[in-house]
Amino acid sequence: MNAYIEKENLGNEIACDSAGIIGYHEGEQADRRMQTHAIKRGYNLTSISRPVNPDVDFDRFDMVIGMDDQNIRDLQSLARTESDRKKIYKMTDFLEEFGYDSVPDPYYGGEEGFELVLDLLEDACNGLIKHIQNGK
């Protein structure tokens, strides 16, 4: 998403961060296989894993986006208020070309799993940028 923000010169308007539901990989870089596939497409994955912090993230961000239904349920359970819950979206809500209802976990599916995830995320990031630019 940060590559799309930069491409559209929206860095002064949009702040994007990445977090996970659990802190199992806290402090680590993205999976090396994902980094390899991302680099082939011109992306440099620089974020360091951290868990969602509901006391900060729901206040700092207008949108909190999960990749699948379990992420959405987990985020809803972390939401403190109805206002927090209204900020929760699923990434596939912004797909324009693909017909998936969740972003699959690529870590157990081989090379094609990483490519599919990148395809889905590129599509969804385009849709998300349009959503933001159109004022939701």
Rank of each mutant, 00 (worst) to 15 (best):
G20H: 08
G20Y: 12
I21T: 05
I21S: 03
I21H: 03
I22V: 14
I22M: 10
I22L: 15
I22Q: 14
G23R: 12
G23S: 15
G23E: 13
Y24D: 10
Y24L: 14
Y24E: 14
H25P: 08
E26N: 12
E26C: 05
G27I: 11
E28A: 09
Q29W: 04
D31N: 14
D31S: 03
R32K: 14
R32A: 15
Q35G: 04
Q35I: 13
Q35T: 05
H37G: 01
H37K: 15
H37T: 04
A38R: 00
A38H: 08
I39G: 01
I39L: 13
I39H: 10
K40A: 12
R41F: 13
R41Y: 11
R41Q: 14
G42P: 00
G42Q: 07
N44K: 14
N44W: 03
L45G: 12
L45F: 06
T46M: 14
S47G: 09
S47D: 13
I48Q: 03
I48P: 08
S49E: 02
S49R: 04
S49K: 02
S49F: 01
R50S: 04
R50M: 07
R50P: 02
R50N: 10
P51L: 14
P51M: 08
P51T: 09
P51S: 10
V52M: 05
V52T: 03
N53V: 14
N53W: 04
N53K: 11
N53F: 01
P54F: 00
D55E: 15
V56T: 04
V56I: 15
V56K: 05
V56D: 12
D57G: 09
F58K: 03
D59Y: 06
D59T: 13
D59W: 02
D59I: 08
D59M: 06
R60Y: 15
F61I: 08
F61W: 08
F61Y: 15
D62W: 01
D62K: 11
D62S: 11
V64W: 01
I65M: 01
I65V: 13
G66P: 00
M67E: 01
D68E: 09
D68A: 12
D69F: 07
Q70D: 12
Q70K: 15
N71T: 09
N71R: 06
I72A: 07
I72K: 07
R73W: 13
R73S: 13
D74W: 10
D74S: 14
L75I: 10
L75V: 05
Q76P: 00
S77I: 09
S77N: 14
S77F: 08
S77W: 09
L78Q: 09
A79V: 10
A79H: 08
A79G: 06
R80C: 12
R80V: 11
T81S: 09
T81M: 02
E82S: 06
E82I: 02
R85Q: 11
R85M: 09
K87Q: 03
I88S: 11
Y89N: 03
Y89Q: 07
Y89D: 00
Y89R: 10
K90A: 11
K90E: 05
M91E: 00
F94G: 05
L95E: 00
L95N: 01
L95V: 10
L95D: 10
E96G: 14
E96R: 12
